[in-house]
């Protein structure tokens, strides 16, 4: 017996990701994070809870951090997205924040890391010298199930003190 489900209607979207424009046909129910990972193959952004609690899927949308599981790709049509793949200044290099994460061992399993980097990148963009309370507030929407928060706080402090190179 053939399926009685109709083929889903597709919508065409144009989304700029890490400076490169992509034009793709998507189902309206495709979340932005699924678009990034499955349609574009940019798997750096992680999917955790898929209902806006864990923060693993954080990306910058027109420069502001958002949860890409809580936005449908059709809603991002015409907008600009920065993912963890877009944080490094050039191929083979890391941003000051990424370097600091390595230096401070601010990751254990690494699952929350892309979201943490996006959250902290936004913090440093608005507040280059954050105190500990501001850092904790900025990562308050991102869960680390390894509970390695202290090293993440240390990494942001290190990055804030380091000369910017990216």
């Amino acid at each position: 017996m053939s399926s009685t489900f109709p083929a889903p209607a597709l919508a065409t979207v144009e989304i700029t990701v890490n400076g490169r424009a992509y034009r793709r046909a998507v189902e309206p129910r495709t979340s932005l994070v699924d678009f990034l990972r499955e349609t574009l193959g940019l798997t750096g952004t992680h999917v955790g809870c898929e209902h806006g609690v864990c923060g693993a899927c954080s990306v910058l949308l027109d420069g502001d951090p958002v949860r890409s599981c809580l936005i449908f790709a059709v809603q991002a049509d015409g907008l600009s997205v920065t993912t963890v793949e877009g944080l490094a200044p050039e191929r083979g290099k890391l941003s000051a924040l990424q370097d600091a994460f390595c230096e401070s061992h601010a990751m254990q399993c690494g699952y929350c890391t892309p979201g943490m980097l996006i959250a902290c990148q936004d913090l440093l963009a608005h507040n280059p010298q954050p105190d500990e309370a501001a850092i904790r507030d900025a990562i308050g929407g991102n869960l680390c199930r390894c509970t390695g928060y202290q090293q993440i706080v240390d990494a942001v402090k290190l990055a804030a003190g380091a000369p910017a190179h990216g």
């Binding site: 806006g52 923060g55 954080s58 949308l61 502001d64 951090p65 958002v66 949860r67 809580l70 936005i71 959250a119 936004d122 900025a138 308050g140 929407g141």
Partner: peptide
């Protein structure tokens, strides 16, 4: 209210 990622939207 929520976190910065949710308040942005």
């Amino acid at each position: 209210v929520g976190h910065v990622q949710t308040r942005n939207r």
